[in-house]
């Protein structure tokens, strides 16, 4: 079967214009460079911002833990050798109040820091710090149980709870060590190091 000829159709002539062609290629390249550069800037800013927010939350947590710590130190330095029974009971009530305070503080900051989005390099540090808070929270919960057992005059149960609290506390110390190791690793991973004036590594509360 023969195809009928297409009458009157002409292929348009393309008049090559080198200048326009270069301009078009240049525009596309510039647009792509802009996109890549913009994206890089954007990501970099985001990560810096994420670390700053994470840092602020850790600082807030450490400040509150510092308050808890001050109360614990004051409580533990009380002379207990010649307390009356009423004073012993008051001592244990204060111990329970500190435990409740510690639990509330650790739970509060756990919630805040868990909600942080951090750069991938800091995920390990974040997880370790959360683990530290969780262990501290558990230790305070055992303190509270020990105080309750004391109130119930079940000294054996109080001792058992204290033993478990000590265990959780040691886990907390380990987790803080992990956090610092992870933090060091993240900072050494070569991300841009540009400390804000007035801040320095090793700051804590």
């Amino acid at each position: 079967m023969a195809l009928p000829a297409l009458p009157g159709i002409k292929i348009p002539k393309i008049a090559p214009d080198r200048k326009k062609a270069f301009l078009a290629v240049g525009v596309v390249i510039v647009a792509m460079l802009l996109l890549v550069f913009g994206w890089t800037l954007f990501v970099s800013y985001s990560e810096e911002r994420q670390v700053e927010v994470f840092r602020d939350h850790i600082a807030a947590s450490e400040a509150d833990l510092g308050q808890v710590s001050a109360r614990i130190i004051a409580h533990m330095s009380t002379t207990i050798d010649d307390l009356s029974l009423a004073e012993c009971d008051a001592y244990v009530r204060e111990f329970a109040a500190i435990a409740s305070y510690g639990r509330a503080v650790t739970a509060y900051h756990q919630q805040i820091i868990a909600a942080d989005t951090v750069p991938e390099a800091y995920v390990g540090a974040q997880a370790a710090y959360l683990r530290a808070l969780d262990n501290l929270n558990r230790a305070f919960a055992f303190w509270l149980s020990a105080a309750t057992a004391y109130e119930m005059r079940d000294y054996a149960a109080a001792e058992q709870n204290l033993a478990r609290a000590d265990e959780a506390w040691r886990d907390y110390i380990t987790a803080i060590g992990d956090y610092e190791a992870e933090l060091r690793a993240a900072e050494e991973r070569g991300e841009v190091a540009s400390p804000i004036p007035g801040t320095s590594p090793g700051q804590g509360s």
Partner: peptide, 23 residues
Amino acid sequence: LRYLPIPKEHYIRPARLPVAGEG
């Protein structure tokens, strides 16, 4: 004669803060 629940471990260790501006 006097019993008081006193934990052996009670020292809260300050943690280092991340260096601000890194990311």
